[in-house]
């Protein structure tokens, strides 16, 4: 186990937790959070409320088990960039939001803290992508790669 793998697990579990919390509650709760950010057109708000928790969950699960790790890290980066943009525009527009709504009732974070946290996670995923061989320790990617090289011999 190395630090990169620990970070991979940390980000993965964070995404699983965030996705699960939204999926187990009525989707209208997360829809309300999205509506409060006032950034998406009406029709897209519902689509985002229904789909993004599943995306978070799958990215988290695939990151933890280490399958398609490089692609998943790219997906995580895209999602984090979207979160940073959405929360930042709310701060700039001074929307009346006191907390992010990212983790439901379990964790309440003020918007600037969320931007800082997401930015740190974004930078970490860049490091992970660059060290993909070390990151792939204890992963299904590694397992399949080893299997492939054994059968090639």
């Amino acid at each position: 186990m190395n630090l990169y793998v620990l970070i991979r697990f940390f980000i993965g579990f964070l995404f699983i937790f965030s996705g699960l919390e939204k999926l187990l509650a009525p989707y209208q709760n997360f829809l309300y959070v999205i509506q409060s950010y006032d950034v998406l057109p009406d029709g897209f708000e519902t689509a985002a409320a229904l789909s993004s928790p599943w995306i978070e969950l799958f990215l988290g699960v695939f990151l933890v088990v280490g399958l398609w790790t490089q692609w998943v890290l790219t997906g995580v980066r895209v999602l984090l960039a979207a979160f940073i943009f959405i929360v930042s525009q709310a701060i700039i527009r001074k929307l009346p939001l006191t907390e992010c709504g990212c983790f439901g009732e379990f964790l309440s974070l003020p918007l600037p803290v969320v931007v800082a946290l997401d930015s740190i996670l974004w930078v970490l995923t860049v490091f992970l992508s660059r060290k993909i061989e070390i990151v792939s320790f204890m992963s299904l990617d590694n397992y399949f790669n080893e299997k492939e090289s054994k059968s090639a011999r």
């Binding site: 969950l57 699960v61 695939f62 399958l67 398609w68 299904l140 399949f144 299997k147 492939e148 090639a152």
Partner: peptide, 21 residues
């Protein structure tokens, strides 16, 4: 062939994970 078979195994595993989730 081995590369193709490992790729199919990975895709199969992906589907199993998705369905279980």
């Amino acid at each position: 062939t081995s590369k193709n078979s490992q790729f199919s195994n990975k895709v199969m595993t992906t589907w199993v994970i998705v369905v279980v989730c």
